[in-house]
Structure formats: C-alpha cells, structure tokens
Design a protein around this nucleic acid. Structure first.
Lengths: 207, 207, 207, 207
DNA sequence: TATGAATGAGCCTTCATTCAT
DNA sequence: AATGAATGAAGGCTCATTCAT
C-alpha cells in the first residue's frame, strides 16, 4: 500500500492511529478502523499496544511534549531587543501549531473528556524551563521600568499569546468549512493572522 | 415525581441531554444514560426525538443560535463612544460565554468531529445582523480617520475578540484541573481575564 | 421449542444457563451459547442479567441455598431414636444431592476458581440453624454417656457424612463414563451407596 | 537464568503448566500465561506440545497414573495383620493425596468438563494391579469367615476409603478460605482427618 | 532450538433502534 | 403517552495457533 518500502507495521499503526485520533478523537476512532486502514488484522493493534488506551496515550504524550516543549524555546535570541524576542516567541509558537494544527483540539478535548490524563499533563508541565521564564520576566520588568512597555504581567501576556494562537487553530476547521474556503484562502488567512497576532500584541504593550 | 410541578418528560429529556452532551460530548453520552438520569424508559428518548442525532441537533442548534445571536447584540448603545461600545461588546460576549461555558467546546468539537452539521450552521450564520455589522464598520472607519484608533480592519478586530474570549473558556477546564483550582480561584481568574481582555484590546487599538 | 406454552424468555435463559453452567462450569459456558440454545439474541442475555457474572451468581446462590438449607432439616424427628435420626439426616442429605447431582461439583469448582464468591458462602453459612446443631450435639453426648455410641465428636461425624455423600456424586460422572454404565446400573449404584453410607456410619459409631 | 543448572525449557514449560493447570484448571490457564511465567516465547509452548490440549493431556495422564497406581501399592506388607494392612492402604493413599492435593479436583473436574479424555482413562484403569486386588479380596473373605470383620464387600470398602480421602482434599480449599484458616490450622485438620478416616473405617468393619 | 509477527475466531459488553402493547 | 422486550451491529479484547526466519 505504501510507496516507500514497507515500514514496520507497528509504525504504520502508530501513524494511522495518530491521523485518526487527530481527525475524530478517541471515542470515534475504533481499533477496527485503524486496522482496516493499516491493512492488517485488528488483533495486531492489540498485539503491539495491548489496549486502545495505551495506543492513544503513546500518541497523546508524544504530541503533548511536542507542543509544550516548543513554547518557550528561544534559540539564539540572546542579543535581541525585547520586542523582537516577543515577536520570535509568538511566531515560533504559531509555527509549531501550524505544523500540528490538530493537536490543540485533541489535547483540550481528550483532557476534559478523560480526566485521568491530567496527571500526565501536570508532570510534563513541571518540566517547563523555569529559568527561561524567570529571565523573560526580569527582562519584561526592566522594559517597563525604562518606559518601553506598559505595565503588564508576564502571565497575562503569555495567556493572551496562547489564546490568540490556539484559538485560531481551534476555530479554523469550523470557519473553513462554514465559509467553504479552499486551501489558498485558508493559507492566506493563516499567514494573515500570524502577522496580525504579532502586531496586535506588540501594539497593545506600547507604553 | 411531583404530579403537579412536573414539567413534561420531553422537556426533562431535553434538559438532561443538554447537560450530558455539554459535559461529555456526543459520543460519550448514551441514550441509555439520558433515560436513566431522567428516570424514564430508554425507548422514550427515541419516541420523542427518533434518533440520538436528532436529539443532539435540537440542542446543538439551540445553543448555536444562543451563542452567535448574542455577539452583535448592542442594545441601548446608540450614543456611546466607540471605545465604550467596543468594551460593551467584548463584555457582553464574555458574559454570554460565562453563562454557557460548555458551549464553545461543544460546538467546536462536534463540528469538526461530525461535519454533517455544517449546513445548518451556514444557514444560521446568514441570519447574523448584517446591518449592525455595517454600522459598526462605518463607525470604526470614522474613528480611524479621526485619528482616535489605529488602522485595523473590523474583521481582524472581531476575530481577535472572539479568540480571546473563546480561548479562555476552552482552556479553562484543563487549566482548572491541572492546577487544581478551587471555585474561588477559578472565578477570580475569569473576572481577571474579563477585564484583561477588554484592556488588552483597547490598548492595542490606540493610534 | 418448548412443549408447554411459552414461558418467559427470562426464565428460559435462566434454565438454559443453569443447565450449561452445571454441565460445563462458568468458564466454558458462553453467553453466546446460552442464547443460541434458548433461541434468542445474545444481547438479550445481557438485557436481563447485565453480565455473565451476574447471571451466574443468580444461579449459584440459588443452588447454594438449596444445598445447605436442607442439610440440617429435621422435620418430625422429635421422638426418634438417635440412630434413626442420624439415618434420617444422612438419607435426607443424600436425596437432596440425588435430586441435584451437579451442584456439589459446581460449588466446589467455582468456589476455588473464583474466590470472590467465598463471601457469599460465608454469609449463607452463618444462616445455618445453630439451634439444631446444638440440640443434636447434646443428644450425641447423652448417647455416648449412656454407652450407646462410641466416643466421637459431632463435627467429625458430620464431616464424614458430608464426605461420603458428596464424594459419591462428585465421582459418579467419572466412574459412570469410565465403566460405561447405563442408567439402570447407575441408579442401582446410587441406591446401593445410599444404604451403604448409612450402614457404614451406623456400624462405625457402635460402642 | 543459570546457564548450567538450567533444566530444559521443555521441562520448565511442563512444570509451570502443571502448576497453573492444578491451580486454575484448563480453561482459565492460557498458553500466554504459561509462557510468561516460564519466561519464554509463547510460540515455544506450541513448538514443544503442538496444542494446549496436548500439553494438558501429558500432565493429566501423568497425574492420573500417579494417583491410581499408588492406591493399591502395598510394599512390604506381606506379613501384616489385615487391619494393619488396611490402615497402611488408607494412610498411603491419604499421603499420596496430601502430597498432590490439587490432583483430585483436576481429574474430577476436567473429566466431566472435557469428556474426550475418558478413553485414555479407561486404558489406564485396566493397568491396575488386578492380582493385588484379588489377593486382598481373598484375605478379606477369610477375615469375615473367621469373624474378625463384619460382612462387607471389598468394592464397597474401597469406595468408602476413596470417598473419605478424596472428599477431604476436594473440600479443603473451600473450607480453608471460608473459615479463613491459616496454614497451621489447615495442617492440623489434615492430620486429624488422616487419623479419623482410618479410625472410622476400622471401627466400622468390626464384626 | 527458538522467536517475533501475524491472524481468525470467539467472547463479553454496550448501544441505538424498533415494535407490540 | 409511555414502556418492556427484543435485536443487529459494533467495539475492545484475549486466545490458541501458524509461519517465516
């Protein structure tokens, strides 16, 4: 079925499962369906992952990590101006979502539907790079003192960034279908909002 | 159980179904469960609504209308300053969500999981009060010309408002559990973000 | 399928299940098989009894009660000689088993295979008619003092009775098949052992 | 794990299988579980024994032989008094069961649950030491003639012995759990019943 | 000899739905 | 209007077994 030479079935299952879980969520995806799409016996799905929950968790944690490890990643931003650094953060986060547009919906959804996974979340959250956050906060305070930025807390700023970026990719599939956009219209909207989000935030924190 | 005060069973089913659908989504809510909670026979759910889909759609459309009809509701705002009008819009929308916090997740979710409902949605969207939108846009252009507001399109402004408000109520259940907030912490956060969203937007559109 | 007019399906399921559970035990009896033999849909078995465990327990407790409530039943034995009373007990117990020959195997088996049911057992055991036991013991002691019966404890005596009676019906199916007995041979053996057990015990307690 | 002291895997499988079959019976023991406990691949079980049935039969026949070949084993009893010989037989049989307490349940169970094995059984039964039986019978008749033993048939006597001994080890696991005995209580009961069975029988055959 | 991969069959259970009453 | 009974379909999972290596 595949064009390139026969990856392992285990990998194939993982990929199909990822696709289906992202498309339809946990409850609406059946192991039977995964197997059918992979082209193998249904029992094989259980052979490799024992339970549907297991399989889901493998994918979930992987995606979860991917999503959160990237938020505060700030490579080579040492000498940047604060505003540029902020722009870089917003855009990095946005690009991460752009590459994985289904993930926010998956996480927000399954997390409220299947609360057991909250624990996983808590653990992972504690792995966030605290040092970077502290540094960023320090920098923000300095900018405020120097009159370059209006009074605002880092946490509020970050929540706003998260909200603007995530909301786009959560709402996009709905709007896309409702307005019957084609791919280019959709891509235009994405690019436009990328700039808009940055602009909106930078404009808002002006002193 | 009361003979007098008893609402009709149909109504009771509707209410229980609404509660459960909002709590757990379509897939995880069974007609059996609805019937059990109502205290009636399982067949009755189908007697009144024929199919589970039907029952869901009744609720879905009702909630959908509620959510969107309120966004552009601007009663008695005739003589307000533009900024005050905007503040009023943001807060009205926010308060609507606050009263119906489960609705955004329901709509965004079920809409991408079960795309058949999109048509209904499109119809409903066309019922939006176009006149109000045009008026608002005119007003915005005037403010921009007069130098009271920076250059920005109405659509971008509205998307940003929607994003900030909706994102909060989508992310809230997760954050609430992850950080183990109690009710008062949660309420504080909601009130805080209500003000913050207004502030953030008004600050951002300064010229 | 039945000759007499259509008992309820629920009852039919119960009867078929009883037959199959007695024949093949819990693990080897499937709800599918029960349904097939009843002539109904498999889901119906679960409609009435929810789970296979449930269905089994209904039968198990029923049989368990039946078996133990009869052991110490001594109607109209007031004026009997001790030996006659003992004979009556042994034969009553034996006849109970004869009417329900599959029960001992079922109980002994499922009780060691599925230890959760031990609790049920304990409860039921506590409902045994303690008063009767005490009376019987008193009588036994008197007989020993009077030199009519050799020194022996009531508990040892009862265990021996239980052992002889139960062992027969546990071993019977094996012997029956191994020696290829026909029904009359089997019935003869049963009657013979009934007398033999009584005889053996009465002979043994002679002073 | 030891390289030297390691028995062959075939042997290891056999031992684990024996343990599990005795513990949980045929139906509740899976080849997967056997393999896991042995620490080898699941396919290996089938490599050595082809089918689960096969594996079971190997163990079953082995245990069956062990159980029945020992009943009439009377080493060095040539010059004994008849009563002593009987005592010896009862105790030997009892001790055999004590060493293999799970076997009776296994045999009685699986034989009625899975009757195919009956043929094997028949063959094995015919290997019983007929000569010994005849000798014993002769001796019994002589004792009866001499007035040392009451009138009784050898077959009835042997069935009673088998019954008393086997019934104990069949009922023990249930009673043990039901009364929550600890090991010492259980061992006391076993020793007590060993003496009691002998006593009971010898007392019963008094003239 | 030994194993990882793969499969078909079966099991228990739940569900939405229908129908006669 | 309301219900108990009944069903077909599907789902997750386990198991004994086979096969290529």
């Amino acid at each position: 079925m595949d064009i390139k030479g026969e990856q392992s079935l285990e990998q194939a299952i993982l990929e199909v499962a990822e696709k289906l879980f992202l498309e339809k969520g946990f409850a609406l995806t059946s192991t039977t369906e995964i197997a059918k799409e992979v082209g193998c016996n249904q029992a094989l799905v259980h052979y490799y992952f024992r339970t549907k929950d297991n399989l889901f968790n493998v994918i979930f944690e992987q995606k979860f990590k991917l999503l959160f490890q990237g938020i505060f990643e700030m490579k080579n931003t040492g000498e940047m101006k604060f505003q540029d650094k902020l722009k870089y953060i917003i855009e990095s986060h946005f690009d991460l979502l752009r590459k994985n547009p289904g993930i926010p919906a998956l996480i927000l959804n399954e997390l409220s539907r299947r609360p057991e996974q909250i624990d996983t979340l808590r653990e992972k959250l504690h792995e966030l790079p605290e040092k970077l956050i502290l540094e960023l906060n320090e920098e923000l305070q300095k900018e405020i003192e120097n009159g370059n930025v209006r009074e605002i807390s880092l946490i509020d700023l970050m929540v706003t960034i998260l909200s603007l970026n995530i909301a786009l990719f959560i709402m996009l599939p709905v709007v896309e279908k409702a307005l019957q956009w084609d791919v280019s219209q959709k891509e235009f909207m994405i690019s436009h909002r990328r700039a808009e989000n940055v602009d909106f935030i930078l404009k808002s924190i002006r002193p």
